[in-house]
Design a protein around this nucleic acid. Structure first.
Length: 599
DNA sequence: CGGCGCGGCGCC
DNA sequence: AAAGGGCGCCGCGCCG
């Protein structure tokens, strides 16, 4: 058990049992070597304040670690979870002021006045009873190593003692929580995600600039001079202006365009593609095409290539835990919104290939398992869950099953989706009850919690103000309508939160289990042109999109990697849902280009 | 000039 | 009239 911390740009690595006797005190240049040595010696779980501040430098130096505990991400979970509500209400567990808010809780300052919590001798991560089903090592028992970087952001030194105290606080909260096992798993998975996010940034997505440019040229025309638009875009713009009889309309200005459309007799209230599509007019088709091309140009055009692709890699900045539900965010490059049209540019290196896998209908399956809804789980067993729902006679066709399920999870009340939801409720009452309960809790302003213990934020001022106004004696019917509307809106958020958030946990556990499996492959010889970090010379994750992953692997390991991807998906299911009979089938492919994975 | 809200749209 | 959840990024247009 070790801690590393820093004071004045020095890093200390410390065993928490003997915090006053650092195992190493080094400058940042020597830190990677020290970590490498201690990691090899005792295989510890490194504890540090923020993975994204410390780990990139280790990776840069070729040092990879197996496990960590990210104090900031874990605090963000623990300080909000309903599972720790009791222990938090004791007042003994205020977050230390030096620990920044988690990525999804910006503005939520840590509570002041830390109180010394009794030292807990529990280990955070021992999960003996699950060791046999945890292939990851992600959540197994292990010694504790703590590292902190100092103060990174505001220059204030965070002492070793502060870090040790915070780890103790978190361990105590977990131990005294309503479900220590679930929280241990969640914190381990969240921390593994932090490692993976940093590693995927360091590795980068293999990106073939020439392929991307070919797509742009075929779709948009040749790259224009600065300040000009590509030929195909200009041609469509001219067609739209001609059809609208508005030679000077600025198609990129919503106001200008809307005015021109109405002048031409197209009665729309917005310029959204959805609404435009309802109308029949010669300007519509070229306008929709124009918008599509402009989207590609501005979001993933030549400027994007210049900014984000270097040395054959796209390196987005991942933000693990970046959203309230626990899904990741990205902070640049739009990595989670890569349009399908440019995915052909994701091409494996020579001699390497891509293992692409996504979990089929992840969210409905997670819902079925969470709700212990045997009928719904059975609909998905060994088949497309939507087809299973059709075969059970609940609805007539797959499209209906899909919109009904989405409607149930998102809270649709009207339209095709809303009409189908009641049929779903009759067939799968337990699943429906779970999401309905989450919605009702949210409407009341309450907090809901995922399968492993990530809780939703409390509703904001908008909700409170609206409810307060509606409960005044002089409240108008408009006030009451407004309050109901705001409440339902929050209810739709909490309804979806439990499903989306629990699905995110499944995906995290999947990756956390897969990562050590990939690390077991022997490194391949480093090609002269590529001397990257060690994990870049073995199969490694390069992309993660909510329920989908890409592993970049030497060709000779592809089949084994694909097997590991499947095995760890099953392992994640067992870890989260035990023996409950629910399937999480993957659609996977071994391909040289991401675009071929859809076939 | 930068900051910000909005409409719109890409992904899940 | 009300309207399915979560995101990030773009350009526009307004603001100071």
């Amino acid at each position: 058990m070790i801690i590393a911390g820093t004071e004045r740009a020095r890093f200390a690595i410390v065993d928490p049992a003997r915090p006053s006797q650092p195992l190493a005190v080094v400058g940042s240049d020597e830190l990677p070597a020290a970590v490498r040595e201690l990691d090899a010696a005792s295989h510890p779980r490194w504890v540090w304040a923020e993975t994204h501040l410390l780990y990139p430098a280790l990776l840069e130096a070729g040092v990879r670690v197996d496990r960590c505990h990210d104090l900031r991400l874990c605090a963000a979970i623990l300080d909000r979870s309903t599972l720790t509500e009791q222990v938090r209400s004791s007042g003994r567990h205020g977050r230390p002021p030096w620990l920044p808010p988690g990525p999804a809780e910006a503005g939520t300052a840590g509570a002041a006045a830390p109180v010394a919590a009794g030292r807990s001798h529990d280990t955070l991560f021992e999960l003996d009873e699950f060791a046999d089903i945890d292939p990851a090592g992600a959540v197994d028992e292990g010694s504790d190593v703590r590292a902190s970087d100092t103060g990174a952001t505001d220059g204030s030194a965070v002492t070793i003692e502060s870090l040790a105290r915070e780890l103790d606080r978190q361990q105590a909260m977990v131990a005294e929580s309503a479900d220590p096992r679930a929280l241990r798993l969640l914190l381990a998975a969240e921390s593994a995600g932090a490692l993976i996010g940093a590693e995927m940034h360091a590795a980068g997505i293999p990106w073939d600039r020439a392929v991307h440019e070919r797509v742009l040229e075929q779709t948009l025309g040749a790259r224009p001079k600065p300040g000009f638009k590509p030929a195909h875009v200009e041609r469509l713009a001219a067609a739209v202006r001609a059809a609208l009889a508005g030679p000077s309309v600025n198609l990129d200005s919503q106001v200008d365009l809307l005015r021109a459309l109405r002048r031409a007799g197209i009665q729309v209230d917005s310029t959204s593609r959805w609404e435009l599509g309802e109308h029949d007019h010669p300007a519509i088709e070229p306008l929709i095409a124009y918008k599509k091309l402009m989207r590609l140009l501005s979001a993933n055009g030549w400027a994007w290539l210049d900014e984000w692709v270097h040395d054959g890699r796209f390196r987005p900045d991942y933000v693990p835990g970046g959203t309230a539900t626990g899904r990741w965010a990205t902070s640049g490059g739009g990595a989670l919104q890569l349009p399908k049209i440019v995915r052909s540019a994701v091409v494996a290196d020579p001699g390497w290939t891509l293992v692409v896998a996504d979990a089929a209908q992840l969210e409905p399956r997670v819902l079925a398992a969470m709700a212990r809804d045997e009928a719904m789980a059975a609909a998905g067993r060994g088949r497309d869950i939507y087809r299973g729902i059709v075969e059970s006679g609940v609805v007539e066709n797959r499209d209906q099953a899909k919109v009904a399920i989405l409607g149930a999870m998102y809270g649709a009340t009207t339209g095709d989706s809303g009409r189908l939801v009641p049929r779903l409720a009759r067939a799968y009452p337990r699943a429906m009850a779970l999401v309905d309960r989450a919605a009702a809790t949210g409407e009341r302003g309450g907090v809901v919690t995922t399968n492993l213990g990530r809780s939703s934020p409390s509703p904001g001022d908008g909700w409170r103000v609206a409810q307060a106004q509606a409960s005044q004696p002089e409240a108008t019917p408009a006030d009451e309508r407004r309050a109901r509307s705001v409440a339902r809106e929050w209810g739709r958020f909490t309804r979806n939160f439990v499903v989306q958030g629990s699905a995110a946990e499944w995906a995290l556990c999947w990756m956390a289990a897969l990562r050590p499996r990939l690390a077991q492959f022997a490194p391949v010889a480093t090609p002269a042109e590529r001397s990257g970090p060690v994990f870049e010379r073995m199969p490694h994750l390069v992309y993660f999109l909510h329920d989908e992953i890409i592993v970049h692997t030497p060709r000779e390991h592809a089949d084994e990697v694909a097997a590991a991807v499947h095995e760890t998906a099953h392992a994640a299911a067992r870890l989260l849902f035990g023996d409950f009979p629910v399937d999480f089938p993957l659609e996977s492919a071994i391909v040289d280009s991401y675009a071929m994975a859809d076939a």
